[in-house]
Design a protein around this nucleic acid. Structure first.
Lengths: 115, 115
DNA sequence: GTTATATTTGCATTATGGTGCAATCATGCA
DNA sequence: TGCATGATTGCACCATAATGCAAATATAAC
C-alpha cells in the first residue's frame, strides 16, 4: 500500500490553481472561445470589439492568460497578436486527467471497500 | 470551411467557468488533493483537520465542489462523507481537451497560414 | 522630430468571494 | 424527551481582483 503523498505526486504538478483560476473567469473563458473559434492570431482590438468590456480590460485578461501559458503573444508592428496555446493546454488537461485516473481506484467497488 | 460558431460548439459545453473557478481556489485544490490521495470517502471534520482553515470553510468549499460535480456527498448518520467524482472529472477534462483539439489546427504551419 | 494608431499601465471604484465565529440544523443515543 | 456530535448557515469582516477611464508607452508613417 502506498502512502497518500507518494500516490498523487503527479497530481499536484498538474492541478495548478493559478491556471484554473485563469480559466474560471467568464470574460477570460469568452476570450479563449474567441481565440479557439478562429484560426491564427488576433489583436487586442479585434477581441475587444466582440466583448462588452473595455479594451484595457481585455489586455489585462490576455496578460493573465499568457502568464499561465494558455495563450502566446507576438508583437507585429503596432499591434500584438494573441494566439491560443492549444497544444500546451490540451497536454495539460490530458496530463491532469491521467494523474487523477492513476490516483483514483477505477472500480467503484474498491472505493466502497476502502471505507 | 466552417464558421466560428459551429466550429466550437462543443467547446462552450466543456469550458465552463464555474467548474474551473471551483478548481482554481487554492484551498479547494488542496481539498481535491486530499480526496484524491486516499481511497473512499472522507468526512468534513477529517478534511478540516488536515487544512489550516476552519471546518465551516471546508464545508462551504465542499459545497462548491459538489455543485460543479467534482465531488459527491453522502450522509451516513451524523456525518457526511465526501468523495471525489473521479470518473466524471476525468471525462470532463478529456472532453474539453478533445473539443479544443478539434477547434485548433493541429499544425503550426496551418496557424501561420491562417493569417 | 511630429502625429496617428495599438496596447499597456496607474489609479480609483466596485464586485466578488474567502474567512472565522457563533448560531442553527441534523442525526444518533441514552 | 434531552444531550452530544457533526455539519451547515448567517453574519460581519477583509482580501483579492474585475472594471473603466485617463495617462503613458510602443511602433509606424509622415
Amino acid at each position: 500500500m502506498k502512502s497518500r503523498t507518494t500516490c498523487c505526486r503527479n497530481l499536484e504538478r498538474w492541478l495548478t490553481p493559478e491556471t484554473f483560476r485563469a480559466l474560471g473567469e467568464p470574460s477570460r473563458a469568452a476570450l479563449l472561445m474567441l481565440l479557439a473559434g478562429t484560426p491564427g492570431a488576433r489583436t487586442v482590438g479585434e477581441l475587444a470589439m466582440e466583448l462588452p468590456i473595455d479594451l484595457s480590460v481585455v489586455s489585462r485578461h490576455l496578460k493573465v492568460l499568457k502568464e499561465v501559458g494558455v495563450v502566446t503573444a507576438e508583437r507585429r508592428g503596432k499591434e500584438v497578436r494573441y494566439q491560443l496555446a492549444c497544444g500546451d493546454l490540451v497536454h495539460m488537461l490530458r496530463n491532469l486527467a491521467d494523474a487523477l485516473e492513476s490516483c483514483c481506484p477505477t472500480t467503484t467497488k474498491q472505493l466502497e471497500a476502502g471505507r
